[in-house]
Design a protein around this nucleic acid. Structure first.
Length: 855
DNA sequence: GTAGGGTTAG
């Protein structure tokens, strides 16, 4: 033994006799009562020279530090332990390792272990190995954890029941079914069978590996049916597999069986109720709790509160909270989460302020939940205050808190703060990696996100469904279809493709890539479709030019027992607008009012857009005027509305009002304005706005703006100006710009320029049939039939066809579509008759019928 | 018993 160590041991054994039993027992009592902070305070106030801490107090104190994530005290105690040469005591070493693992420092835990392994006189025994292996697993280093498990056996240390339950726990987490079965075999071979702990661990393993029926059959073979823990694990196992009905059945059976329910039986039942959102059953279990006199059990109350919160009844949750007199920190934490989960983040922050003022204990759960609340409401200032609190309480190395801080800063838009947290993170579990990857994605740093994902996998941390979701959004953000397929393949390999979040992200990704069929395939193979999945599919059809499919999905959603939410309404309204199905739009609007679906900005904007596009400017106006808040999109939609209805003055007036409301216009605003001027023939105003957008507002014009100006000049007959405008463009004009000029040439019968423009257009895209049509029409207009015939022949020779134009009309809840040149309708004679009479009516009243083709 | 990262909208 080293001399110093010898001395310190001697010193310790000497002092042991001098220990003041009163302070020791006081500390122990405080720990037992859960008054951790007071215990630590007493310990830190006790003069070091008195060394009043006995050996057996260290483990309790370390446990305290672990549960408070108080690394500062943990390290102080570690120092005392080293001073007293006790670091190789297996019981103390185990506690130290556990403390470091729980405080988020696997590295320090391993150092304690390594020091112990190096020391000659006290090799780690199984009680020390167990928390080390557990630590590796907790931080996602599964291969390393298993390697250590094997190394331990090579050193001749046989796993005990606890080791086996730790490894079984990993099989649970990673759904390692085959490994779990092997351990089951090991248990039988090595006579561990009948150990009630392992029996329940096995039931838990089979449940977590999605084999609830194998767990159930093991449960059925239990010798001791009164092992309530096994019942509880089985109740939890059913919930885990989405079989909450079975779970509640089992709870009812347990009630009638001769086994005494414990608090975990109720907590399991409450979890089942939360998953099934069966508030009624939850209330019944609440009655059982009162009948069996568990209403003062802190565990039961916490899960009861959570059940009410998850079922959406935050008021009931608050009642439970208020009724508990001796509120523990866990209950307060649950209330904070309840508020945040039900959109009342500010109440959560308020509760925290009260906790601080009342000097009630605050732990890492409180802090991490609170930070998540700050993320929801984007409260940077409050978030920073909490960050200060984290440092004050020495919680900055807790991995959950770091993850929450990172997310808070990213969501509040402060990448610098987020990055500085990022660089201090030493230990990363899968959630921490997930926070970073998601943070990068939110800041459009998709490549960084994917690099991080690869680094994570390289470190042996396996992606879970949360990480997968972010990775999919990174693939989408990079607009790389091949990568998207690769990611999909990876998700299948990991068995994550049917997770709702992953599947919804995949649907969205394929939808945005334009692969509606692939999106459909993912959607149809989803085992549990939620409303988000349905909404994603509606959005997919809208995005991919299939508005009628999108609208037709609605009755199916209702048939599946869902109520539309504001996202569904918004999404379908887009589809409704694109086919101008006014009746459908009004029905949706009525549904939204009748079911009191919250009318947020998005819904109102979509309603404005729908009414504008369906020709009801009045309704759009009404909604616009009654809106409590407006954003850029609101202004843009209404300006475009006036513009498309030929009311340019009103559009410009609104633009001025928008400026007064201090909303900065964007490129969409100017496009709406210039188009509006073009429709009303206000050429100078339009040109002026085009100049203004760049000079005064710093908005760079896009191709649409150039096309709009060409249209503006062209409609007014200023064809040469339009042509020289195109020549002076800083970017190459695309098809849309040339087409605008060609249409103008046709309208103003300018053959010379028309042919020149058409020539340009056809050089650009010779294989596009629709490019020839305006030229054909132009020849028709000036009656140059021979040229028209030549062009037709040349098109035919190249096998070119123009995709037919179409229009549609909604009558009596049905949308009819008509294609140009299609004479298949059974009522075509009536249709053409009506068109002819319309045409002559219009001519009689001196109206132009430009654009109406009567074939 | 309570926590931290993720999906749909113009």
């Amino acid at each position: 033994m080293h001399f110093n160590q010898f001395i310190s041991r001697k010193f310790y054994s000497l002092r042991q006799t001098e220990v003041s039993p009163s302070i020791n027992s006081k500390i122990k009592a405080l720990v037992q009562q859960g008054k951790y902070s007071q215990a630590l305070e007493l310990h830190s106030k006790t003069p070091h020279s008195a060394l009043t801490t006995a050996k057996f107090t260290f483990p309790s104190l370390l446990k305290t530090c672990a549960s408070l994530s108080n690394l500062y005290h943990g390290r102080t105690i570690h120092a005392s332990i080293v001073t007293m040469g006790l670091q190789s005591d297996p019981y103390i070493a185990t506690s130290l390792i556990n403390m470091y693992v729980k405080c988020g420092l696997l590295g320090s835990a391993l150092q304690v272990f390594d020091k112990m392994s190096e020391s000659r006189d006290s090799a780690p025994d199984i009680t020390v190995w167990n928390p080390v292996i557990d630590g590796y697993f907790k931080y996602g280093h599964f291969e390393e954890g298993l390697a250590q498990f094997c190394r331990m056996q090579e050193l001749g240390i046989r796993p005990d029941g606890y080791s086996l339950s730790i490894v079984l726990g990993i099989c649970n987490r990673l759904s390692w079914y085959m490994a779990g079965r092997q351990i089951h075999g090991y248990i039988i071979r090595n006579m561990f069978e009948g150990d009630p702990y392992l029996e329940t661990a096995l039931i838990g393993m089979y449940s977590s590996c999605s084999r609830p029926m194998e767990a159930w059959s093991l449960f059925g073979k239990l010798e001791n049916r009164s092992n309530i823990v096994a019942w509880n694990v089985m109740i939890g196992g059913f919930v885990e597999n989405g079989m909450w009905e079975k779970s509640l059945e089992l709870y009812s059976l347990a009630k009638n069986e001769n086994c005494k329910l414990v608090s975990a039986s109720f907590t399991g039942a409450f979890t089942a109720c939360s998953h099934g959102e069966v508030l009624d059953f939850g209330r019944q279990v609440h009655c059982d709790v009162i009948k069996m006199n568990f209403q003062d059990d802190p565990y039961v109350c916490t899960s009861l509160l959570t059940m009410y919160a998850k079922s959406g009844s935050v008021e009931d949750a608050k009642k439970v909270f208020d009724q508990v007199l001796d509120k523990e920190v866990e209950l307060r934490n649950a209330m904070i989460s309840a508020f945040i989960g039900n959109g009342r983040a500010y109440d959560a922050l308020g509760l925290y302020n009260k906790m601080k003022a009342g000097e009630t204990p605050v732990d890492s759960f409180t802090i991490s939940s609170l930070l998540s609340g700050c993320s929801v409401v984007g409260s940077y200032d409050f978030g920073r205050t909490v960050h200060a609190e984290v440092i004050k309480r020495s919680m900055q190395s807790n991995v959950a808190i770091q993850s929450a801080l990172l997310t808070m800063y990213y969501k509040c838009g402060s990448t610098e703060d987020a990055d500085s947290v990022f660089y201090t993170m030493k230990e990363r579990d899968v959630v921490a990696w997930g926070s970073m990857i998601a943070g990068f994605c939110q800041n459009r740093r998709f490549k960084d996100a994917l690099d991080l994902f690869r680094a994570m996998e390289k470190e042996g941390v396996k992606a879970d469904s949360d990480v997968m979701t972010s990775v999919i959004s990174a693939g989408l953000g990079l607009e790389n279809v091949e990568l998207g397929h690769l990611i999909h393949g990876f998700a299948i390999k990991r068995g994550l493709e049917s997770d709702v979040f992953v599947a919804c992200s995949l649907v969205d990704m394929y939808s945005k890539f334009g692969f509606a069929e692939s999106a459909e395939m993912v959607f149809s193979s989803m085992p549990n479709k939620n409303l988000v999945a349905w909404n994603s599919m509606i959005s997919c059809y809208s995005w991919n030019g299939l508005p009628e499919m999108s609208i037709n999905l609605l009755p199916q959603i209702l048939q599946h027992g869902f109520y539309l939410d504001s996202v569904s309404i918004t999404t379908v309204l887009v589809a409704v607008s694109s086919v101008a199905a006014l009746l459908k739009g009004k029905t949706l609007h009525a549904y939204q009012i009748r079911l009191q679906i919250p009318s947020d900005l998005q819904v109102e904007n979509a309603l404005i857009d729908m009414y504008v596009k369906c020709g009801c400017l009045k309704y759009a106006q009404l909604i616009f005027e009654n809106m409590p808040r407006r954003n850029l999109v609101t202004w843009n939609s209404m300006i475009a509305g006036y513009g498309s209805h030929g009311n340019c003055e009103e559009a410009v007036r609104l633009f001025k009002e928008m400026k007064r409301s201090e909303t900065a216009p964007d490129e969409v605003t100017f496009l709406a304005l210039i188009t509006s001027c073009s429709h009303s023939g206000m050429v100078e105003e339009g040109l002026n706005l085009f100049q203004l957008m760049r000079i005064e507002y710093g908005v760079e014009p896009r191709m649409e703006h150039y096309a709009s100006v060409v249209d503006l000049l062209g409609r007014a007959g200023r064809l040469d100006d339009a042509y020289s405008f195109i020549r002076g463009m800083p970017i190459d004009a695309d098809r849309s710009v040339w087409l605008c000029l060609l249409f103008a040439c046709r309208a103003h019968r300018n053959m010379e320029l028309g042919e020149l423009v058409a020539d340009n257009l056809l050089k650009m895209e010779p294989a596009r049939g629709s490019n020839y049509v305006p030229l054909l029409n132009l020849y028709g207009e000036v009656e140059m039939w021979d040229r028209a015939a030549n062009l037709r022949a040349s098109m035919k020779g190249r096998g070119l066809k123009k995709s037919p134009g179409c229009s549609w009309i909604e009558v009596k809840n049905r949308v009819d579509v008509f294609f140009s040149g299609d004479s298949s309708s059974t009522r075509r004679i009536e249709i053409y008759k009506t068109l002819s009479s319309l045409k002559s009516n219009m001519e009689g009243k001196g109206c132009s019928y430009e654009g109406i083709e009567v074939c």
